[in-house]
């Protein structure tokens, strides 16, 4: 139990997927210009992460033990089809949510956070429960980072910044400050 709580906390804060491990940077810089988008993308990602964790556990337990060289290919195929299935199910049963998520669902396939989760789950040897908690933590951490970034960028929009910083340069420096702030959590693991 203690172990599960620690995995959760460390994935949300200490080893935040976006700010400490550089996973899922494309949505982090691509769609964080508004907070509303950040919420939705974070929710969609968390959902897919959870399903991926379950599928990866199934794959690792029943298929890949004997064919480790197929790991990358198997993972990406499973992720791509999972996203497709999730998209169809949501469209059929929860059309409201589908409209809300829109284009973000298919884009999740090429989000490094999903494949990253699968690979880290494998290399750390997480079991079923640990994998689920890891996925939940990763999703929440991702959402947290997206919301923080979205809020800051909404403020930057109305601020008077010099011409040379109007592009992505300033956003990256802001991301660096956020990442530095999250480094403060690093001490939590040593106690």
């Amino acid at each position: 139990m203690n172990n599960l709580a620690w995995i959760f906390l460390s994935t949300v804060l200490v080893n935040n997927f976006t700010l400490a491990m550089f996973l899922g940077l494309c949505p982090f810089f691509g769609v964080t210009s508004k907070v509303g988008n950040a919420w939705r993308l974070g929710a969609a990602n968390t959902f897919v992460l959870l399903i991926t964790a379950i599928s990866v556990w199934l794959l690792n337990t029943f298929v890949l033990a004997r064919t480790p060289y197929l790991r990358t290919i198997a993972f990406i195929v499973v992720i791509a089809s999972t996203v497709q299935i999730v998209e169809m199910v949501i469209k059929k049963f929860v059309p409201v949510l589908f409209r809300e998520l829109g284009i973000y669902l298919p884009l999740i396939t090429t989000n490094c956070a999903i494949l990253g989760l699968a690979l880290f789950q494998t290399s750390r040897g997480y079991g079923f429960a640990e994998g689920l908690v890891f996925a939940l933590g990763a999703g929440l951490g991702l959402t947290l980072a997206l919301i923080l970034m979205g809020s800051i960028r909404e403020r930057i929009e109305v601020a008077d910044v010099p011409a040379m910083a109007r592009g992505m340069g300033l956003v990256l420096v802001v991301a660096s400050c956020l990442s530095m702030a999250f480094m403060g959590f690093a001490g939590m693991g040593t106690s």
């Binding site: 592009g167 992505m168 340069g169 990442s179």
Partner: peptide, 12 residues
């Protein structure tokens, strides 16, 4: 990690 964001930000 912060240095990665910072370096790319400064280059940009």
């Amino acid at each position: 990690p912060a240095g990665g964001f910072l370096t790319l930000g400064l280059v940009l």
